[in-house]
Structures are given as structure tokens and as C-alpha cells.
Amino acid sequence: MAEFDWQWLSAPAGRGEMWLIETDAPDGSPLVIGHHGLMPLYFSDRGTDLIAGKTENTMVHPDYRKKLLYPKFEKQFLKAYSDRFDVLFSTVGPPAALRQRRALGYRAERHWRYIEIALGPLAMVGLLASLAKATEAPSPKRALAGKMLRLGARAASGLPRYRRRNGPSLREKNGDCSVSSDFFGGFWETARRAYPITPRRNRDDLEWRFWANPNVRTRTVFTPDGGSVQGYAVITEVSRFQYRLDDIAVLPNEAEAFTALLHSVCDWCASQGAQVLSVMTTDDPSGPGAAIDRAELPRLETRWPLAKMRKATGQPMLRHATGREGRDISVSDWYVTPFVFEGRA
């Protein structure tokens, strides 16, 4: 129940949209056979607040998938809730759902990409071990992961070595100490004006998405000293050797400042024993992926054998501007981190 309340009732942007498809049961009572959900999120566009809706938990009971035409229902739902939202998006989904939403006006201009930053000599081995452990057995993918893991040590010998840099100092957020309260209380109010369309990052947004999320445990580091580069990162420990970057923002939002903060985040992860830092983002030109590409860090995602296992990279992130209140909102250049995911483990 705590997970349901968190996801659908307690978001800073308000209660989620939950639309049901019903039919009559044999005894004449209502029978729920489908659901379409929309999670509301505050977004920001160069300082202007927007309301975004993330499609979530769209499903139809298997016995009725060939008996009803689902797209007509979502078309009705879209018409009903468009006046509440400035922009809608889908993170990932089955090909059929993506095709249906394209027909409804969603656009697929930007695609997902994996980035794997090597932090230590066991980076490839550690990452492959995490992938093998996370894949349900038995499956061809798990078997491939096991095989690749056995070969990973040999591949690792040719990896470029990560070397630590002297970036801004970081401090881990522990509870609500005065330093972190001061930082997160004012950081986004200043930084937001430099960011294209992206989730809003006020303190209550971060509290809901990460710190009070009952589904996941994250660690947050930030710059406590008020220097020329300010920022924070939210990190998940996927396994002993693999850490995942779930969010990052920097002030000023410039390439040099982002690179300096990213180097400090990599240094911190390496100091905790991480061998690899995983990032999932999109190919938006103003997004963190483009900034990471400029940072000249040792990378794994295009190297054998990982490239063989990551053929799913390239799935589109669908976006739809509703035109609410006559707003002209871009769907082609966002700043996307895993903040936009549903926030479950």
C-alpha cells in the first residue's frame, strides 16, 4: 500500500490519472479488464513550470486483447486528460504500445542510450556479473551473460585505465543536516533557468522521487562549499562493483562545469569500491549523454562483449506536446536522466 500511495497519490504534482476499462461479468457485475495510468510530474522549461504526464501501467487482460480495440480507449483517455498536462511521454514499452502512441501524435525523435564508465580494472567483469545476476534464469540472455563473464577478464586487459581528477569536493547527504538543507533548498531555483525541458528538482521533488521512495535506496552527493561549480548526483549501488547514476545536475549548466562534477562523482564512486558507473539517458543534444561524451572517460558500452548484449539500445522515448494554453513546447531537446522512470526497483 505504501508503494501505491507513493506512486499514485503523493507526487508533488498531484494524484495520478487511473483509467479503467470495464465489461460485464457473467453475473452482471462490473469486471475490470484494462488499465491506463498517467503519473503527473512537475517539469521545468528554462525556469517555467510545466505539468508532464508519464504513461504507466497500461494493460489489458489477456482474455480480452483480441476482443477489444484498445487504441480507441487510449484515444478517449488522451482527449479527456490533455487539458491537465503540457506534455506527455512514455519511457519504454512494447513495440505495439509505441506504435499505438505514435498514431495518437507522440513523436519518437530521441532514443535511449546506455553509457558505461570504467572506474577500475574489473569494470567489464563487474558489469557482466551484475547483468548475469539480474537476468532471470533460465534464458538465452543469462546463458550469454555467463559465457561473456567467463571471457570478460580477458577482454578487460585491453581497457583504458580510469585516472582520478581533482574536481569539486563532494559530501554525502545524510539525513537533513543544515548544509544539505541549505544546498537543496536553493540550488534548483537558481539552476533551472539554464535547463531545457527536464523534471523539476525542487527539494520536495527530490524528496518524493528519491529520498522518501519506498521502492529504492539511493545515495546522494553534493557540493557543500558554494564554489564556482555546484551540483549533486543521485547514485544507486546496483551491486558491489556496479553503481548507477540516477540523476545529476550542475550549476552553471556548461560543459566544463558538468565535466568537473562528473569527474568528482566518478572519483567518489571509485572510492566506494565501484568498478563501473552506469548511465541511462537519451541522445538529446542538451542532455547529459552529450556532456559525458565530451568528458573523455574510459567507456565500455561499445566494446566486446557488452555491445553484443545491448542490442535494445535505441528504443525511442515517445513525447507529445498537448498544446495546452497555446504553449509551444519542444519534444526534440530535453535533459533526461532516470528521474523520469517510475521509480520502482
Rank of each mutant, 00 (worst) to 15 (best):
254 E>R: 15
255 A>Q: 15
255 A>W: 06
255 A>G: 12
256 E>F: 11
257 A>M: 10
257 A>T: 10
257 A>E: 05
257 A>C: 10
258 F>K: 02
258 F>V: 12
261 L>R: 03
262 L>A: 10
263 H>P: 04
267 D>W: 04
268 W>L: 08
269 C>Y: 03
269 C>S: 14
270 A>D: 08
270 A>V: 10
271 S>A: 15
272 Q>K: 15
273 G>R: 09
273 G>E: 10
276 V>F: 02
276 V>T: 11
276 V>K: 02
277 L>C: 06
278 S>V: 12
278 S>L: 11
279 V>G: 03
280 M>I: 13
280 M>S: 12
280 M>V: 14
281 T>H: 06
282 T>F: 04
282 T>I: 13
283 D>C: 09
283 D>N: 15
283 D>G: 06
284 D>P: 05
284 D>K: 03
286 S>V: 04
286 S>Y: 09
287 G>A: 11
288 P>F: 05
288 P>W: 02
290 A>T: 13
291 A>T: 11
293 D>C: 05
294 R>A: 15
296 E>P: 00
297 L>Y: 01
297 L>V: 10
298 P>W: 00
299 R>M: 11
299 R>F: 07
299 R>W: 07
299 R>H: 05
300 L>W: 01
300 L>N: 00
301 E>D: 07
305 P>A: 05
305 P>R: 04
307 A>Q: 10
307 A>K: 14
307 A>N: 12
309 M>Y: 01
312 A>I: 08
313 T>C: 12
314 G>W: 02
316 P>V: 00
319 R>L: 08
322 T>N: 01
